[in-house]
Design a protein around this nucleic acid. Sequence first.
DNA 1: AATCTTTGCTTGTATATACAAGTTGTCTGT
DNA 2: ACAGACAACTTGTATATACAAGCAAAGATT
Lengths: 234, 234
Amino acid sequence: MAAPKFVEIKQHLIANIERGVWREHAKVPSENALAGEFGCSRMTARRALTELVEQGVLVRSQGQGTFVASLKSQGSMLNIRNIADEVRDRGHDYQVQVLEQLRLPADASVAIALGVAVGAEVGQTRLLHSEDGQPVQLELRFVNLALVPDYLEQDFYRQTPHEYLSQVAPLTEAHHEVEAVVVDAKTASLLQIDQGEPCLRIHRRTWSRSGTVSFARLTHPGSRYRLGGHLVMD
Amino acid sequence: MAAPKFVEIKQHLIANIERGVWREHAKVPSENALAGEFGCSRMTARRALTELVEQGVLVRSQGQGTFVASLKSQGSMLNIRNIADEVRDRGHDYQVQVLEQLRLPADASVAIALGVAVGAEVGQTRLLHSEDGQPVQLELRFVNLALVPDYLEQDFYRQTPHEYLSQVAPLTEAHHEVEAVVVDAKTASLLQIDQGEPCLRIHRRTWSRSGTVSFARLTHPGSRYRLGGHLVMD
DNA sequence: AATCTTTGCTTGTATATACAAGTTGTCTGT
DNA sequence: ACAGACAACTTGTATATACAAGCAAAGATT
């Protein structure tokens, strides 16, 4: 099934930027020009541009035009990385415990997060990821089984949910939020921390072409984990 | 001059959420209902809702409706944003207290962070940023006075350090790390939180063409602030 | 040569309309 | 009581059109 027209336009623009057709501060075609080129309305072209402005890829000014912004994302915080790869890239040993792997009907909050109906069956997995024997992440994840019907059949001792999902429903989009929390006693025990110890909690929603695939809640002990990112303007 | 209609609608919705008319996960009026209520087109109402979704205030699902997301403040991880602009974009009032603004020789950790010699003079500023009267960020910043000699002459009640630095030493690069911490009693008091409450701490180093300009340590109450980001892959 | 006006382009805001797709509730038939 | 169909509601995508506001270039005037 074809992507919406505004998504095609976005992808075209991003491709041109990444290929170096337009460099930093270059002017991109106007709304009218893109409408002509793609055979669509100016409002549809405008939506593509507007979303790229929201994402920091473009900047625009009334009367002047639309230009390539200079900021590029780099670094692990800014990309969706596989926790196993992160740990191994640090030269450490990665271990995982699969705590839970089951099918259940979505409650209201899961349904909203995944964009499915309340009661729709979703896959729920809970994994404890460790680095050199010490827990660094408790991963609670809900997956849309309509899009990934074999999710629960996987052996997550052999590959992480992220690895599997990257194969069967490659990411096109992710949204995440990071907050500082104090966790409940059970979570503290799993992570092998004192209960008052602060944790980083990352809520991450990911999409593939077919829709919202996964909603994950990742909890990291504050003492053992930090997120990093490096932005370069070129 | 009146604000655009879509902005009025946004402000109305935000006001209702803040007043507690709608709590977390409450359903908000549909596009059609808002169009009727505000005497505008569905597309105008839709724009207001869409922007609030982009800002993380609302979440929506086709066929189900639009719901209130978490009420916590959000910062962007993908862009280096000015805290004053973040607060104002949420439709809130921004306040600042300048707690400290002085010149001092760099100790070892500051020297390393800024890439200057130990003992080199740096500018140190400490500001408390608030949103609608509530502290959301304690900013401790060290600035390389060799690159920004007039930094300490600025009035940071009138413009934030970020605004000033953007003018005189535009960013070319930034590195930041996010962690969850428990702060000391003094910081807890400044942020108006209990001492055991977790905080997000962002360490941010920024460069301009001439070198390392600034090192900032930003502390946010976990209960009032979260970072968000949206990535698109192709 | 300088200045002003006009024109053409751009983005910004807005409305009306249409159809697609998803969800939920109601009604009917078994 | 249950299942299926249908209606009504929702959000999602799209087009056409119109006017506002900002900017820059070209042309006219001094």
